[in-house]
Amino acid sequence: MENGGLMHTLAFFLLSGITLAAAMGVVFKRNLVHSAFLLSVTFLGVAGLYMTLQAEFMAAVQALVYSGAVAVLVVIGVMLTHRQQMSRSNPPNKMLLVGALAALSVVGAIVWAILATPWKVGKGSVVTAGDIGRRFLTDFAPPFEAVALLLLAALIGAVVLFKGGKAQS
């Protein structure tokens, strides 16, 4: 697909539309399970956007990890937690107007910034998984290893919190 071509533009708007509509659904659906599945659609939409940016590896990771694993985990988490009735598990709150105003003003600021800034758009090059891996283990080795520690901390944390919950009941 050529950058800036008709198909490219069309794909961008289509995928953005799907992503945004699904994201709205995540917030507004009353049933938490519906929200969780729509979250998966949002992730897939983002994966599609990565494809249009020629970031195939990112798109694959997005689809596998987020849409595949994270969304499923959210659904399982919802199913395992205690609740009365699923159809009212994601209730709206009374801050709708204030929230909408705040969100709109933030969106306004960002849109203004993006439209008014002259971006330097390059040709771009295809980044392969190999390139990413090489940079992980050279330039970006410290943050890469730090992320490994972060995952270990999260794992330990999950066990700690689980034990705490068990001691409580």
């Binding site: 330990i156 700690v160 705490g164």
Partner: peptide, 11 residues
Amino acid sequence: FSFFILVGYVL
């Protein structure tokens, strides 16, 4: 992340 868990340590 480490602080998230430490803050909620006493569940």
